[in-house]
């Protein structure tokens, strides 16, 4: 509990320091809104031309887009320390400073950054979710609400785990943001659409390596009453756990990378 308290206090402080420049903060938040709005526009235009993909109608596609958008940017809000700060921390030696404190490195990294501007992207995602729910006329039940909440929760851990790829590469002094982006941002762009529209290799990639399909698409398809692969309802509660599994694997690799750092120095 002490760690959670530390995290909350760090967040409060970060927001306090960001609000020292309110105009800049507002402008950037607005920019985020426009950017994610552009992404949604692309989906709207595609649906305008093609109407549907496989069994997925317009509402279903908006729902998938919204689910990804909300989950991804939720992770960006809280995972900023990993994506934004960590690589430069390794390069300028700030990582040593973290090691000199009696706390876990990952805790401290996550405490070191937040990106509240992304709230604008989440707003766009929410709009898309509502659009999807309306058009597809989803019959909401407490079970479905729970399933969606669970999906978003485990998506958070999945994406946080993927963000750690770059951190791990950086420690091994591999400097390629673009390579790390392939899985994170590439995965986001691809899995805005249900994974069954992709050919087998990509489908396997999004099920096994970066399991967006298990964490998002399986529960979402059940919520839409069009279960992927015809799987029963309970699977929608089980498959999202894959997100936690991936996070755990990445966390282990991260610890291994730190061990490597401690034996080689910077």
């Amino acid at each position: 509990m002490n760690t959670l308290r530390l995290y909350c206090r760090s967040m409060a402080m970060l927001i306090k320091s960001q609000l020292q420049y309110p105009l800049s903060f507002l402008m950037q938040t607005l920019a985020q809104l426009v950017m994610e709005g552009g992404e949604l526009l692309a989906v709207i235009l595609l649906i305008d031309r093609f109407d549907r993909v496989n069994q997925w109608g317009p509402g279903d596609l908006y729902f998938f887009f919204g689910l990804m958008s909300v989950s991804f940017y939720l992770t960006e809000i809280f995972g900023r320390g990993l994506t934004g700060n960590f690589p430069s921390m390794v390069r300028n030696g700030q990582l040593d400073t973290l090691m000199l404190r009696p706390r876990g490195i990952l805790t401290q990294v996550l405490c070191s950054g937040a990106d509240p501007r992304r709230i604008a992207c989440i707003a766009v995602g929410t709009v898309s979710l509502i659009m999807g729910s309306r058009i597809s006329a989803i019959a909401w039940s407490p079970l479905k609400v729970l399933m969606m909440a669970e999906s978003i929760f485990f998506s958070f851990w999945l994406i946080l785990g993927l963000f750690m790829v770059e951190a791990i590469l950086t420690i091994h002094s591999v400097k390629s943001i673009e390579l790390a982006n392939t899985l994170t941002y590439g995965g986001r762009s691809a899995c805005e659409y249900p994974s069954d529209i992709y050919p087998r290799p990509l489908r396997i990639l999004f099920t096994v390596v970066a399991p967006f399909a298990l964490v998002m698409h399986v529960p979402a398809s059940i919520i839409l009453d069009k279960p992927l692969f015809g799987w029963p309802v309970w699977t929608g509660f089980v498959t999202p756990l894959a997100g936690l599994v991936l996070f755990f694997i990445m966390y282990m690799l991260f610890r291994k990378a730190l061990k490597f750092y401690r034996s080689t120095g910077s």
């Binding site: 093609f50 549907r52 591999v174 590439g186 529209i197 992709y198 990509l202």
Partner: peptide
């Protein structure tokens, strides 16, 4: 390294986009 990483990334994004349009074309 940056060039190679960029190339992999672009190829991946390209493949994903092509896959999306292929699926859409298949329907309409």
């Amino acid at each position: 390294g940056a060039v190679l990483g960029g190339l992999i990334c672009q190829t991946f994004f390209g493949l994903v986009l092509v896959a999306i349009y292929r699926a859409m074309y298949a329907g309409k």
